[in-house]
Simulated scan of single mutants.
Amino acid sequence: MAKQTDASSMNRRQQFAETYRITKRTDPRIGWWLLLTFLVTGVLGFLLFKILPGSGAIEWVLSVIGGIMFGTLGALILFSRRAQASAYSQMEGQPGAAAASLNMLKRGWNVDTAVAFNRQQDVVHRVVGPPGILLVGEGNGSRLRALMAGERRKHERVVAETPVHEIVVGREEGQVPLPQLMKKLRKMKREVRPADITDIRARLKALDASRPAVPLPKGPVPTSMKGMRQNMRGR
């Protein structure tokens, strides 16, 4: 069995190379798109600096430097967007995909993966953040309804005054596609103050103490997600 690379042990250049390799699986023309973007934005940057006041060799040097800077920035922005799309494409529909996506949330959001599950590997994750408590389910929609309803009752008994929301990840009617999950969470109405989140999490500890531990399925979700975090966050 091939040994998996630990993204946390990579330097920035290695992470970039690994992300490029993973992206190329579903986006084989990524190299050509990056080159084209670099050239187009580079020319625009060159022309922009060329019209600035200056003369002689200094004008040309500044224009070339400006073109390289603009071209590099344009290519990096495009790479970030296409890498994110590629990562979601490879993860979607596989066990643990929603958990991998949720773990990219920034400070202010607290994620607890697999707080509830069944034998068929339908899983409910919990996010505590500005909108309140979000129960995020992944698996079979029909089976998740009962599982999430039970979790909702448990949470409402512990934190009755905190809003509890249910989200099912998938492509069926009423579900949220994996690529839209982060956007959905961030657009939700803020109903909980940051100071209250600590209190909510403290109350949930008693609920979690009675749960059996469950490891998330390993293998299907690309391990490169750790290395792609810096490229994907907030993009």
Rank of each mutant, 00 (worst) to 15 (best):
R81Q: 13
R81A: 09
R82H: 12
A83E: 05
A85M: 11
S86L: 05
S86F: 07
S86A: 13
A87F: 15
S89N: 12
Q90R: 14
E92Q: 14
Q94I: 10
P95M: 01
P95L: 02
P95K: 03
A97W: 01
A97C: 04
A97Q: 02
A98V: 04
A98N: 02
A99C: 06
A100Y: 00
A100H: 01
A100C: 01
S101T: 14
K106F: 06
G108I: 00
W109N: 12
W109R: 06
N110S: 12
V111L: 04
V111N: 07
D112I: 11
A114I: 10
A114D: 05
V115L: 02
R119A: 13
Q120N: 15
Q121V: 12
D122N: 01
V123P: 01
V123W: 00
H125L: 11
H125M: 11
R126Y: 03
R126D: 10
V127H: 02
V127G: 10
V127R: 02
V128A: 13
V128Y: 02
G129E: 02
P130D: 06
P130G: 10
P130L: 04
P131C: 09
P131Q: 08
L134N: 10
L134F: 05
L134H: 05
L135I: 09
G137M: 01
G139K: 00
N140G: 02
G141F: 07
S142Q: 13
S142N: 11
R143D: 00
L144C: 01
R145I: 00
A146E: 08
M148H: 00
R153F: 06
H155P: 09
E156A: 13
E156P: 07
E156R: 11
R157I: 08
V158Q: 07
V158K: 03
A160M: 05
E161N: 12
E161M: 09
E161K: 13
T162P: 05
T162C: 09
T162Y: 01
H165P: 07
E166N: 04
E166R: 05
I167M: 09
V168G: 01
V168C: 09
V168M: 14
V169W: 04
V169N: 02
V169L: 07
V169K: 06
V169F: 04
G170R: 11
R171L: 12
R171E: 14
E172K: 14
E173W: 07
V176M: 07
V176Q: 08
P177Y: 09
P177G: 02
P177C: 05
P177L: 07
L178P: 02
L178V: 03
Q180K: 14
L181Q: 09
M182L: 15
K184Y: 13
K184G: 06
L185G: 07
L185I: 15
L185T: 04
K187C: 10
M188K: 06
K189E: 15
K189S: 15
V192P: 08
V192D: 05
R193H: 15
R193K: 15
R193A: 15
R193S: 15
P194N: 13
A195E: 15
D196T: 08
T198P: 06
I200R: 01
A202V: 09
R203A: 13
L204Y: 04
K205H: 06
K205L: 10
K205F: 05
A206R: 13
A206Y: 06
A206Q: 12
